[in-house]
Simulated scan of single mutants.
Amino acid sequence: ALPISSLEAQIAGIADDIAYNSHDLDDGLSAGMFSLKDLEQVDWVAAIMHEKRKTWPNIDNYRLTQETIRDVMGVYVIDVLGETKKRLAALKPQTADDIRHAKQQTVAMSEDLRKKDRQLRDFLWAHFYRHHQVSRVRRKVFQCVQDLFAVFMEHRRCLPPEWQAQIENTPKGWKAKDWHARSVADYIASMTDRLALLEHKELFDTYQMMR
Rank of each mutant, 00 (worst) to 15 (best):
D97T: 03
S110E: 09
D79M: 03
A126L: 15
W125N: 15
D117V: 01
F149K: 10
V151Q: 09
K115Q: 08
W174N: 09
K52H: 08
A165T: 05
P160L: 04
E67R: 07
Q66I: 08
G82P: 05
L91H: 01
K115N: 04
R87V: 06
D112I: 00
T170L: 04
R130I: 10
D117H: 15
R138A: 14
K172I: 07
Q104M: 06
K52Y: 04
Q133G: 14
T68Q: 14
D122F: 13
G74W: 12
E168N: 06
Q104E: 15
H155C: 04
A165P: 00
D112N: 02
P161M: 01
H101M: 05
R70K: 11
A90H: 13
V145S: 06
L159R: 03
H155E: 15
D60Q: 08
R130K: 06
I69T: 01
D60F: 06
A89T: 07
R138C: 11
L81Y: 01
M73N: 04
K54L: 12
F128E: 14
L148Y: 13
T68Y: 12
S135A: 15
K52C: 09
R139W: 08
R100G: 12
Q105F: 12
E168H: 10
D79K: 03
R53P: 05
F128M: 12
G74T: 07
E154D: 07
G82S: 05
A108Y: 15
E154A: 04
G173V: 05
V134K: 15
D147Q: 14
W125C: 10
Q94P: 02
S110L: 02
V107W: 03
K116F: 01
P160C: 02
A89G: 01
P93H: 10
L120M: 14
K52Q: 14
W179P: 07
M153L: 09
D147K: 14
H132I: 12
D178W: 03
I99G: 09
T68K: 09
Q66G: 02
C158N: 13
L124F: 10
F149E: 14
R63G: 02
L148M: 07
H50Q: 14
L148D: 11
K172T: 09
Q143R: 13
Q105E: 11
R139K: 15
A89L: 13
D112M: 02
T170Y: 06
R130D: 09
A108V: 12
C158H: 13
Q164T: 00
W163C: 00
T55R: 06
F123S: 09
A102K: 02
V80R: 14
V141Y: 08
V145K: 11
V80D: 06
E111S: 08
Y129Q: 03
A108L: 04
K103V: 12
R138I: 11
R53E: 09
A150L: 05
Q66Y: 02
T84D: 03
R87T: 07
D60R: 11
V151M: 02
C144L: 15
Q105C: 05
W163N: 10
M109C: 02
D122K: 14
L159V: 00
R156C: 03
K175P: 02
I167L: 09
L124P: 14
M109S: 08
D60L: 09
Q105V: 01
V75E: 11
L113W: 03
L113H: 12
K86N: 05
